[in-house]
């Protein structure tokens, strides 16, 4: 049966991608994805060679035909997102950064000067990497619909896994608890939360665990850089114990991890002292819990 593991963190910069890259290196038969579509980083380590590239049409956007516009200003009156600007030289026009693409202006316009057209919000890719195939994406700068793009990446990964007869997908998730995170975890077999023993790390861990509980998803926790604050590490252990969340790995702080990153290597393919060994154990533990 197809299993899907999503790696998230709540707080950014706790080591999601570092841990994901180790899974990529150590687990043989799987599809990798990067679901952090607005700041994707996994490709920096996996160095994918793109096999297929597709446009991502996330929705529609309004387009104004100024030759039909009479500058009546109704669109500006009705828009709830303050997305219609006015200037002497341009008249009324759409500010794409404020626009929510709801299409109200197109209904409102008495001249039919505004129509809804397909919006290209980014691109998605299927690539070959030294660690197997990968599905990833790039959201256009400042574009909407990141949740939809995440969903698309996961759908494509599932299709690819079926075609290649693979039974495991590993998703590198985005930070936060909003729309792209929800899209990255819903329906996953298991969520691995990578946290750090800082009060911000703990605060965000709690919120992302709550989100997982909201969607009734099994959660595992890994404490990265655990040695920077042992008191906080103990707090995380206790929080997890109270909620019956298994802590499946505790990775020590090690400056060499940064050097591995600079060398664009996974921590299991670069001498990182203790870290390499602990991360190997972590991967084995997670696979066992996934039934792999």
């Amino acid at each position: 049966m197809l299993k899907e593991l999503t790696i998230v963190s709540g707080k950014g910069g706790t080591g999601k991608t570092t841990v994901t890259a180790a899974f990529a290196s150590l687990v043989p038969e799987k599809i990798m994805t990067d679901c952090d579509v607005d700041a994707a980083d996994l490709h920096l380590i996996l160095q994918p060679e793109i096999l297929r590239e597709e446009k991502f049409i996330g929705g529609r956007m309004p387009q104004m035909d100024k030759s039909l516009c009479t500058d009546c200003g109704l669109c500006q009156q009705e828009c709830r997102f303050a997305a219609i600007d006015y200037s002497e030289e341009r008249g009324y026009h759409i500010n794409p950064f404020a626009c929510d693409n709801c299409g109200l202006c197109a209904f409102v316009c008495p001249e039919g000067a505004i129509t809804m057209v397909d919006a290209v919000n980014g691109a998605w890719y299927i690539s070959r990497t030294p660690y197997g195939k990968m599905v990833h994406a790039k959201l256009g700068i400042g574009e909407d619909n990141s949740g939809k793009l995440v969903t698309l990446v996961r759908q494509q990964a599932k299709k690819l896994a079926e075609e290649e007869n693979l039974s495991l997908i590993i998703n590198d998730g985005p930070p936060g608890i909003g729309c792209p995170v929800t899209a990255a975890i819903t329906g996953a077999s298991m969520v691995l939360v990578v946290t750090e023993p800082t009060i911000a790390g703990i605060h965000d861990l709690e919120r992302v665990c709550e989100l997982c509980r909201h969607f009734q998803l099994p959660v595992l926790v890994c404490i990265n850089k655990y040695s920077i604050n042992l008191v906080n590490t103990q707090k995380i252990r206790q929080y997890c114990q109270e909620r019956e969340i298994p802590v499946v790995g505790e990775i020590p702080f090690e400056p060499q991890v940064n050097q591995a990153l600079v060398a664009r290597k996974s921590v299991v393919d670069f001498p990182c002292g203790q870290v390499s060994r602990v991360v190997r154990q972590l991967v084995e533990e997670v696979l066992a819990r996934l039934g792999k």
């Binding site: 700041a39 959201l139 700068i141 909407d144 990141s146 930070p175």
Partner: peptide
């Protein structure tokens, strides 16, 4: 600001 480059950041 939140991290990233999508709607909440804009």
């Amino acid at each position: 600001a939140p991290p990233g480059t999508s709607c909440p950041v804009i």
